[in-house]
Computed example of a mutant assay.
Amino acid sequence: MAIALTAGMRSNLIALQNVDSLMQTTQNRLSTGKKVNSALDDPVNFFKAEDHYNRASDLAAKKDGMNEAIKTIEAANTGIEEIENLLAQMKSLASAAKTSDNTGDLSDQYDLLISQVYYMAQDSNYGGQNLLDSDSLSVEFNEDGSNTLSVSGFGVAANGTITSSGGTTTALSASDFANNTTVEASISEIDAAISMLRTESQKLSSSLSTIQIRADFTTEMENTLNTGADGLTLADMNEEGANMLMLQTRQNLGTTSLSLASQAAQAVLQLF
């Protein structure tokens, strides 16, 4: 047997159903923190936000590559600084040979330092890449990889030959401290090597500065994209909290109204 509902009761039930639906929506927003959780909520804002989030994610991956490149260059620059210290020590030994009677020991120390220059260069690698062993980097700045920067390294050979990124060479010959002329020749070789290292260090530092600027820019772009996407999808928690309170009040009022409508219907039935 079907239960007959009065117009007032039907109206109150529909109102309660609407309130319940709104409460579910509000509860979902409060639990997720978002007003747009799927394309059904707002297709335009949902897909715009997805594009922003995806681009921010792609840029974050590129920034990881930039940070690795920065560390690789820093490792190379550290190696260059220490090689310069070794060369300065070699220069001191050569200068001392001009006035020393014990050139044999000085010569042995000098030749040992030449090998240490090579070993220092070999140990200046980071993550399997070594800009002091003629490796190169290609750093990508944007999400599709169309904007890049190439960083070329240079080589330090075991025989003391240093080859610049441009292909020019200078050599550190084994010691020959027979006379002041040969000593001065060794000092000239050291000065040429130091000059080349400083030139290469300047190039690497310029590339490092560029990559750091792009990494900072990428961070700002990530923040901008994520903030923009959040603005399209995130809910105002204060507003949603107030909505929930209002809906709860409406629900209570609707339940009371339905109860009153039901009592009125029962009173009419008692007349028969």
Rank of each mutant, 00 (worst) to 15 (best):
M1E: 07
A2N: 11
A2Y: 07
A2D: 07
A4Q: 13
T6E: 04
T6N: 06
R10A: 13
N12R: 13
L13T: 10
Q17E: 11
M23C: 04
Q24H: 06
Q24W: 03
T26K: 03
R29L: 00
R29W: 00
L30T: 03
L30A: 14
T32H: 03
T32V: 06
V36W: 09
A39H: 14
D41M: 02
D42L: 09
F47E: 10
F47V: 10
E50A: 11
D51Q: 12
N54M: 01
N54W: 00
N54T: 14
R55Y: 05
D58I: 06
D58Y: 11
L59N: 09
K62S: 02
K62M: 14
K62L: 02
D64A: 14
M66N: 03
E74N: 15
N77L: 07
N77C: 00
E81T: 13
N85L: 06
N85T: 14
L87G: 00
A88D: 12
S92H: 11
L93N: 07
A94K: 09
A94V: 07
S95N: 12
A96D: 08
K98I: 11
K98E: 01
D101Q: 07
T103M: 13
G104A: 15
S107M: 06
S115E: 15
Q116M: 02
V117I: 02
Y118G: 08
A121W: 00
A121H: 00
Q122W: 09
D123H: 01
S124T: 01
N125H: 07
G127T: 08
G128W: 13
N130G: 05
L131F: 07
L132N: 08
S134M: 06
L137T: 13
V139S: 10
N142A: 14
E143M: 04
G145Y: 08
T148V: 10
T148D: 04
L149K: 10
V151A: 11
V151M: 03
S152I: 08
N159C: 04
T161M: 08
T161F: 09
T161D: 14
T161P: 02
G167C: 06
G167N: 04
A171P: 05
L172K: 02
S173N: 07
A174V: 07
A174K: 12
A178K: 08
A185E: 14
D191T: 08
A192D: 13
A193T: 03
M196Y: 11
R198V: 01
E200G: 11
E200N: 04
E200T: 12
S201P: 10
K203L: 08
S205C: 05
S207R: 05
S209V: 00
I211C: 03
I211D: 02
Q212P: 09
Q212A: 09
I213W: 00
I213G: 14
R214M: 09
D216S: 07
T218F: 01
M221T: 15
M221D: 14
E222N: 15
N226M: 04
L232G: 13
T233K: 15
L234W: 03
E240D: 11
N243Q: 08
L253F: 15
G254H: 10
G254W: 03
T256K: 13
S257D: 02
A261M: 06
Q263L: 12
Q263M: 10
A264N: 13
A265D: 09
Q266Y: 12
Q266C: 14
V268C: 00
Q270A: 09
Q270C: 05
Q270P: 00
Q270K: 15
F272I: 06
